[in-house]
Nucleic acid binder design. Sequence first.
DNA 1: ATTAGGG
DNA 2: CCCTAAT
Length: 653
Amino acid sequence: MVLLKRLEYGFNGYQVPPTPRAARSARRRCEFRRKDYVQKMCAFDLLATVAGKLLLEGECSPKSVDTFPDKEQPEVVEGSVKKGEIDDNKPLEEKSCEQDSCERNFLFTEIVSQAPNSNFHANQLTLGQNDACSRPASVITSECSEKVGSAEPMFNDDCKLRLGIFPHTLDVESSVCRLEGETKKLIKIESPNNRNLAIIDRVDMCNVGRSEAWDRKPSALVSSDDSQKFPFCGDQILCGSFPVKQDVVKLVTRDDDEKSCGCTKPSTTNKAFRPPPHIGDCRTRKLLPSKYWKPTPNSKDKEHYDPDAERCNYLNRNNSYKRQRSQRDYPFKKRKFFDCSSVSNSDEGISSDGICSVPENGFDGGALGSSQSLPRGPTNPTSLPSERASFQSRNSHVKLKIKSFRVPELFIEVPESATVGSLKRTVMEAVTSILGGELRVGVLLQGKKIRDDNKTLLQTGISHDNKLDSLGFTLEPTPTQPPPSLCLEDCPFQLPCDTPQPLARYHPTPNVGQIAHLQDSKALVSVPPMKAEALAMVPMRKSKQSDSAQRRIRRPFTVSEVEALVQAVEKLGTGRWRDVKLRAFDNAKHRTYVDLKDKWKTLVHTARISPQQRRGEPVPQELLDRVLTAHAFWSQQQVKQHLKPQPETCLLL
DNA sequence: ATTAGGG
DNA sequence: CCCTAAT
């Protein structure tokens, strides 16, 4: 029997933290230039950029066009998210607590993700408090991505959210929030730059049953507060992609980090999208861009973690560790096994499924520039073609929001004898082959592709007084790719862990034409989040040969991680990082032994400097003392070993 | 694959 | 965190 699965795989279930400040340092910028990072934005980046950016700017709420008769509507469990909140076709005002949020100066973001076929449950998490230094954080997760074998566990096992017990500061970057019940707890979310704390005031979340995971699509974002919605539903946009249902993840955050500047700094990019400011409300509403989202598998938390698989991944790959790490942690690094993969006929790509326009309100100067309400860092791309085009008009501005993009229909064909793991990898490869290649943006107006890039929007018919409900964007594979090679059988391969591995293949729908080879699945077991930096690099260059890696997201060590590290080093010494890793961080995929070594280095440094000079989340002095003690001890041991290795040998003899 | 160390 | 040389 052939397993035929359709995959609707959105892009914005991927989370990326705000750009670390360090990344904006001169050194980092220099590095970016040097390494041509611009070239390396891949499809995920672009997807996130397009949707995340536009969403971030938008304040309107695109209605869902994802209601399809061929799929059941998700069943909402009683006591969970209200139906109205899940019904994406309802006006947002009805389904959100926007008014409350407004009164409390909360930012409100609603995240909509694809729902499985049926039986998905929703839990609601209400969080009450704020804190003076909060900022919006990307949040929450759903348990889907891992189900297609795609995601590495982007979470710290210690940070599990459940039943109101929330012992730790939650590192959003590295946490999975498993909502196992209702809770009303304050969640602090450690922002990636480790300086600002985010408070999630409310989270609504849908859990997806395992059986539905295959059909699950990661979250997309929609904004929450706009009364003017012009859902785009052009046929051209939808063809090649399948309807999907949606579940809803809601997040309410407050952004105190921005509040002081929200009404004082000159508004630039985002202003055009912002609603007129409320009197007395200095905070700006803002949407969490999809780049803040990442796959958040839950299958590797303490209850489901499979150490064998992990160990297999970690130890048994034939590739060098460096490459392994690159491919696992650096999602968009060029992967050589895609070299012969994925071509598509040029006109069908990933379609936007939620575009709305906002008529000009006249409250904005319309200048494009840095956006203060964006997360700090080079995360405010302003060169997105569609967006840029939207703002070229001097007097009238066309405001667009692209809610999400869909991946074209994908068919997976796997022998019955295939392992689940290989199936996951196959799906992941298929997805990656589509999203991992370079893409370009296409513009569709009333179903017709606009190919003349030099036309103005006005000339094209995209004007602010149009409803623009016939405007769509597509993400198309660049036509520079080699012709599709269908001979999957010609490239047999061995999967690293599951042996023997049956050959797997997949092919997209004919009108999409995305084919990918299965040459090497090693790097496909995970799709790390996109980097925020990538969002600043919207333009992609033609070069497909960029070989440098995307920098990993910054994931500061939590105190508990430091504790574990210190304890392990105390026991094992400073020269056995692999053992330290296996001992204390075996479950933390994102912590390599190099990371641990580096962290130890910085810990030693931190312990030696004055507390005033330290940055980031404070490490308890007790830990730092232990660091110094252990470091001194093991350094001494090393010296001893180095000075008199012979006597010991003699003794042994 | 690991370790060590500079950046 | 990245990058690399040296194991």
